[in-house]
Amino acid sequence: MLEVQHVTAGYGKLEVLSDLSIQFRPGRFTAIAGPNGCGKSSLLKAIMRFLPLSKGEIMLDGKPLEKIGRKKLARRIAYLPQECFCPDYMTLGELIELAGHSRYELVGGPSERDRELFSQVLKTVGLSDRAGFPVNKLSGGQRQRAWIAMVLAQDTEIILMDEPVNNLDITYQFAVLELVRDLVENHGKTVISVLHDLNLTAAFADDVALMRGGQCLISGTVEDAVTPENIESVFGLKAQVFEKEGRLVCFPERSETTVFC
């Protein structure tokens, strides 16, 4: 169980998380949503310890995260940044082999078990025939699945994703999120993902955390949290929420005058 307790953090004087508390339930897909600049990515960075905390603590199974070494942490939590950069000529096979770094000896390499995991991972993301292919020559949707493969090859129970479906067309958005859904349901992973789109959140996530101004205003299951009142208080936007085929759909209303605040 990953728990964020009264965390305040920022870049220099700029405070991006202020007294934020949230619990992420294991074996669930939690989406983090909220307006731009509300601290969604910073929350993930704080969990990964890229952002030093000035107050509060983040606990993993009751143990403060900062007491866990980098290598040990890499065996528990994997992280998919918002923008990934792959060096040229790197093949997909090399990419996922590198991901297991925390399990290898310094001069050693992957074990037999690791190799089995890698071929399983490639099958899961549907890229079994692309192992020898340079990552930078894959199509946009395939590349995003390659990054997810790298995260899966790290073989952790918790996976953090920062907008994994950004810049993908709607087909790939669904394909990637179906894959994430499958990881949670059939592979026992805990996924915590920043997602911009409330409709995608409602369609795929179990839980949702709505953030604003560096705080988590509302958290709970999708059914409880995605309501017109909550959307208005977090996004400042009037919206209808209705159910269609067992799924919630948000329908923002157009206003006569656009207000930027």
Binding site: K45, M48, R49, F50, R70, K71, L73, A74, R75, I77, A78, Y79, P81, C84, F85, C86, P87, M90, L98, A99, H101, S102, Y104, L106, V107, Q154
Partner: peptide, 23 residues
């Protein structure tokens, strides 16, 4: 040569490298 793998991971960016366990 001993540092070759963590160095390769650093090519992916400092944060990605750190997330895979590289100091």
């Amino acid at each position: 040569l001993v540092l070759a793998r963590p160095l390769t991971l650093i090519l992916f960016g400092a944060e990605k490298a750190a997330s895979t366990g590289v100091n």
